[in-house]
Nucleic acid binder design. Structure first.
Lengths: 136, 136
DNA sequence: TAAAAACCTTACCTGTGGGGTAAGGTCAAG
DNA sequence: CTTGACCTTACCCCACAGGTAAGGTTTTTA
């Protein structure tokens, strides 16, 4: 009859978030404090696990914990406007774009250096030379 | 005559690494302990500053502090083979590639969700719906 | 020449998002 | 009733940086 109840290990498996992180999310206030069993074990219900899954999906999309906190508020707020969510997501895409640009710059520069390096037993190396340059 | 000497603030400006991080790099063993003035101020010479600049350039290329430690060893080892450096750099490119893929996956998925969201004052929102889905 | 500003020192806390370990309580199966 | 698997809290650690505080030194300025 109460098949809807999970302890933290079961909730971890069901949500793909480690017990460790579930406790941390609770401690940091991202999720509400779990109710406890007589022996002080955390007890979760299906709704709680859905929230954890929501968090997991958002983390997989690269949202920060802070952003997820906002998303959870919007999620549980039936009066939210979808534009609020959309702007949060759009902002996050801009951040992803920025990181992508940085990584691409690094990669192309490094690829150029690697292609200039003969990579044999000789000690002279354009990669180290470039890193040692005083000017870029 | 000793125009080649810098205190930590000057070394920071010359290398574009904050005083803070210079101290930390020393503490962590990435760079040797600086010599000290009579009043216990750290003193750097041109060679030290070149090492800091080397580190800065490598950080800008996304190398980890650990990798930079290896690069510094190779840099100061006149008997190194360029292949060692090249393989370290190549390995790092693979890591950059992996991160790029992850970020691209996030971005395209999120872009798809955003394009599905009408983003007006109505509460229904495909982004939240997707995050709340039990299956992906 | 004395005060003030600018710099240095160490030591500690913050964030971000995790991982690990230890010491002890609880539960279920054998 | 013991053993193993689970739970609890309380710490430590990683990378990589920023901030702040309290105190000493050096340089500039009035």
């Amino acid at each position: 009859m109460q098949s809807d109840l999970y302890n933290i290990g079961e909730a971890a498996i069901a949500s793909c978030i480690s017990s460790k992180m579930i406790r941390r999310y609770e401690e940091s206030g991202l999720i509400p404090k779990a109710s406890r069993s007589l022996s002080d074990y955390r007890v979760y219900n299906g709704k709680n696990v859905n929230m954890l899954r929501f968090i997991k999906h958002a983390r997989d999309l690269g949202f920060s914990v802070k952003q997820i906190s906002s998303l959870l508020n919007l999620w549980t707020d039936q009066a939210r406007s979808s534009s609020e969510v959309k702007s949060l997501a759009t902002e996050h895409i801009l951040l992803l774009d920025q990181k992508l640009k940085e990584l691409n710059t690094m990669k192309s520069e490094l690829t150029r250096l690697v292609s200039c390096c003969h990579g044999d037993e000789r000690p002279d190396c354009p990669i180290l030379d470039s890193l040692a340059q005083n000017e870029i």
